[in-house]
């Protein structure tokens, strides 16, 4: 019997990797997309050609803040699993847009849980909530694990903490199979270009080809626990296959500074980042999270999950990808002129 899943945020980094994983496993995959006059499906275009060619991937217009349309969709599709990955996910932007961030990341998650709760009355459904290491904020213990108290430092993190506790509340109050995956930073060639790792690999490869001269960054001393997004979506799926709903930290257990990531990327291109990087205070967050380091022991013990890709390998994957992109850019420029 084929399973079906609904993914919110399917056009994002994680959504696209998860869609690939589930399609490989034989799922019918439904994706929720915001309507926009410019198409945002770049990361799943290789999966989504035409409904006649791939009837296993279907996209539906909606919005996490539109609870009624979301409930209708969930009741019509009757998915076995719902992965709530949709969010305003940029921490810095959440300081400029706190209300929108809470509506989407907090109330949006509640809308998903409400829809699932209604469907669950007639048909069992399992929900994955994308929680975040940002919830630990100004960390109260290191490394951070499932029992570490939250201490959020941004509107984004506050909204994610709200969604986290609502997920637990729906599990306890209504017996809904709802899990939180507390994911530490996870990157890939599909990372949005305003996120620091991708910003670095894009800039380094463009600098290598003479398309760019400088790279402006904020706090180079911030330390993160960075994994590969493709490894992490596997953990999401494993959580929903587990015998009971639970919350899991997903991390590598290693931490590196942005400085160290710069070293990995620029040295792979035989460049010295000190020649190109400039500090721009505009990129400093009003409140910075200094050291995030996750302890994934529980996921390893109960789900049999562990990260496969080191930061060095990840940097290589991203540099290789972005170098190709930069070459194409160079080619197009010569074509136009």
């Amino acid at each position: 019997m084929d399973k079906s899943a609904l993914i919110t945020g399917i056009t994002g980094q994680d959504g696209s990797y998860l869609a690939e994983l589930l399609l490989q496993k034989g799922y019918t995959v439904h994706g929720l997309v915001r309507r926009s006059s410019s198409f945002s499906t770049g990361r799943i275009d290789h999966l989504y050609r035409d409904i006649h060619e791939n009837p296993k991937l279907l996209l539906h217009y909606g919005d996490l803040t539109d609870g009624q349309a979301l409930t209708n969709l969930v009741l019509n599709l009757q998915p076995d699993e719902i992965y709530n990955l949709g969010a305003q996910s940029h921490v810095r932007v959440s300081f400029d847009q706190p209300v929108y961030t809470l509506m989407t990341d907090g109330v949006g998650a509640l809308n998903v849980l409400e829809a699932a709760r209604i469907l669950n009355n007639s048909k069992p459904v399992r929900v994955y909530q994308a929680s975040s290491s940002e919830m630990y904020g100004d960390v109260l213990e290191t490394p951070q694990k499932e029992t570490t108290p939250f201490n959020p430092q941004s509107p984004y993190a506050c909204a994610k903490v709200y969604a986290f506790f609502q997920t637990i509340n729906y599990r306890r109050s209504y017996g809904l199979f709802a899990c939180n995956g507390i994911l530490f930073n996870h990157e890939s060639p599909r990372r949005g270009e305003t996120f620091v790792t991708r910003k670095i690999t894009r800039a380094a490869t463009r600098i290598k080809l003479g398309l760019q001269k400088k790279l402006f960054l904020g706090n180079l001393d911030a330390k993160r626990d960075w994994g590969f997004a493709k490894d992490y979506v596997e953990a999401m799926w494993l959580m929903l296959q587990h015998q009971q709903a639970d919350d899991f930290v997903i991390a590598t257990g290693h931490t590196y500074s942005i400085r160290e990531f710069l070293d990995l990327v620029f040295s792979k291109l035989d460049l010295n980042w000190n020649d190109y990087v400039e500090i721009d205070p505009r990129y400093f967050r009003p409140a910075e999270v200094e050291l995030l380091l996750g302890d994934p022991t529980k996921a390893k013990q109960l789900l049999g999950w562990s990260p496969k890709t080191s930061l060095q390998e990840l940097a290589e994957i991203m540099v290789d990808h972005d170098l190709e992109l930069a070459k194409r850019e160079l080619h197009n420029q010569s074509f136009q002129s």
Partner: peptide
């Protein structure tokens, strides 16, 4: 502009 993880502003 709305924030989106895909920076689609071709126009």
């Amino acid at each position: 502009v709305r924030r989106s993880s895909t920076m689609q502003r071709p126009r």
